[in-house]
Write a protein that binds this DNA or RNA. Structure first.
Lengths: 148, 148
DNA sequence: TTTATTTTGCAACTATGTTGCTTTTATCTA
DNA sequence: TAGATAAAAGCAACATAGTTGCAAAATAAA
């Protein structure tokens, strides 16, 4: 990553935290930075590793929970029972997530992506059922891994 | 449950195990019976509790894994990071699951149901992505919990 | 019924997630 | 900018979830 982009991300991080009424701390800056630098989603374990063993495990848990609560990141359930986290788009706010896109898990690189342009389909439920949220996770091969 | 139905289920259980080349043991019978008696899906914890503390935790893990491998049950990922298990329809076989239905998690009773009649929709993926499996989990209120 | 194979239970271990409390850090205000 | 106040981090201890190796027990086969 170029120096210019690096500086830009550092600027974004402080902004984003303040906009959500969060005090700006080292761990929050570092973890948020990881998300901004990263194309796909991150699991808790990834973050612990990539934060350079600088922060306590508990801090990572609490930071992620705070970010979810504030609508900065959202969770993605996957078949292997390991929750992934990814940045929300701007429409999300504290206590109110508005992510209607689908998620894609690559069977090759095992990265998880938000496909922001693919909205969740309407599901025709049987009589008596009513939906409040629809989660779609597609498994397959991502565009970086496809055979050309 | 009536006596007649009970006997019928016990019969099914042995059949189902033999058909899948599994030796018929107490724990397999008991756990499979739980699934047959149950409308919704079961989490690992449910099974441990409802098997009456008769079996070792490890046995439950291994039995569930065996059933998944043989195509007797399938897993359902949920947002709270607790995998649920449910019976497969007959089309599934060892190493080859064919479940194309969607799953429904009730926010009231927190039961999980397979909606076998609702097939997973076609998803239009961006260029470069290819899908091998689509998982749809709908949250909301189930037909047993709806206000009438 | 005996033998061979599979499965279970146990013990120990690793990983994952949570809670209470003290110390440290960030923010607010004078 | 320094001190007061509020928030977050770190630590320790704990709770839960999941795994592995191995000996004992149960099942299936001969």
């Amino acid at each position: 990553m170029s120096k210019a982009v690096q500086i830009n991300i550092e600027g974004q991080v402080g902004e984003l935290l303040k906009r959500n009424n969060l005090s700006v701390t080292d761990s929050r800056k570092k973890i948020l930075q990881l998300f901004l630098e990263q194309e796909g989603a991150l699991a808790h374990g990834d973050i612990e590793k990539r934060a350079g063993e600088k922060f306590d495990r508990v801090t990572v848990y609490r930071t992620l929970q705070t970010f979810v609560d504030k609508g900065i990141i959202h969770t993605i359930p996957t078949a292997d029972n390991s929750i992934r986290y990814a940045l929300c788009k701007d429409e999300c706010s504290a206590g109110h997530h508005h992510d209607h896109h689908i998620h894609f898990v690559c069977n090759n690189c095992s990265n998880t992506f938000c496909l922001d342009d693919v909205v969740t389909p309407e599901i025709n439920l049987p009589k008596g059922y009513s939906a409040s949220h629809v989660e779609v996770v597609v498994e397959g091969i991502c565009k970086n891994c496809k055979l050309t």
